[in-house]
């Protein structure tokens, strides 16, 4: 059995999967429970509907919240459970085959694409934010970035690019967050400015 040290890329990826997967899973479960509560009682006000801008109720009632004909958080429960499990598997020291890595790449790419479509819907169409959805946005970015670096590392032709990216992966994730934060700030400018005045 080999010892995996803290800076080893596999351990880093495993930790990211475990933490990101758990964050996403908790958010998806919370959203599902709020959805069930809303179905049981149409007058139910979700715990995360604080004001006109921060309002899960508005977001959950939108057509985009059931993009595939059923509530999106069901996808999240399935997907993030897999992600956190893979995280544990990686931390346990398993070496996963290349085809499995491609599966992870496909899954996280779909997740990232879907989430960014939802970000667009939330900011420019629904005009409301939902805190649990924000947790999912936060979870998806590092999952996608680190999975992509790992996929690149697995192939000879892209290994050097992966090594270069790996040196700035945290910065890349943070910069990505900053861009999303800027878009959120811009889209709800009228609201934020009332908070600082």
């Amino acid at each position: 059995m080999t010892f995996v040290d803290g800076r080893h890329p596999t351990r880093r990826l495993g930790l990211t999967y475990l933490l990101g997967g758990t964050l996403g899973l908790v958010a998806a479960v919370a959203l599902t429970l709020e959805k069930l509560a809303t179905l049981a009682d149409p007058d139910h006000v979700p715990s995360c509907s604080l004001n006109p801008v921060i309002s899960c109720g508005t977001v959950m009632a939108s057509p985009q919240a059931s993009a595939f004909g059923f509530p999106n958080p069901l996808l999240g429960i399935a997907g993030f459970a897999v992600v956190s499990t893979v995280g544990v598997v990686l931390l346990a020291g398993a070496r996963l085959p290349r085809w499995f890595q491609w599966g992870l790449q496909a899954g996280t790419t779909f997740g990232a694409g879907f989430v960014h479509w939802l970000i667009g819907a939330s900011l420019y169409d629904i005009h409301a934010l939902c805190p649990y959805c924000l947790a999912v946005w936060i979870a998806v970015v590092p999952l996608f970035v680190l999975t992509t670096v790992e996929t690149l590392r697995r192939h000879d032709r892209t290994r050097r690019a992966a090594a270069a990216l790996a040196r700035v992966d945290v910065a890349l994730v943070v910069a990505w967050y900053v861009v999303i934060a800027a878009l959120v700030l811009q889209a709800f400018w009228d609201y934020w400015i009332t908070l600082v005045h």
Binding site: R167, V168, D169, V170, A171, V174, A175, V178, A181, A182, L185, W192, I193, V196, H197
Partner: peptide, 27 residues
């Protein structure tokens, strides 16, 4: 490390820009 350095730079620049814009909009 480049990671920490770039992260710090990004955060500082973002904080300055966001904060600056918010403050200048205060009347």
């Amino acid at each position: 490390s480049p990671n920490v350095l770039i992260t710090l730079v990004v955060l500082v620049v973002a904080a300055l820009v966001f904060g600056g814009v918010l403050l200048t909009q205060r009347g």
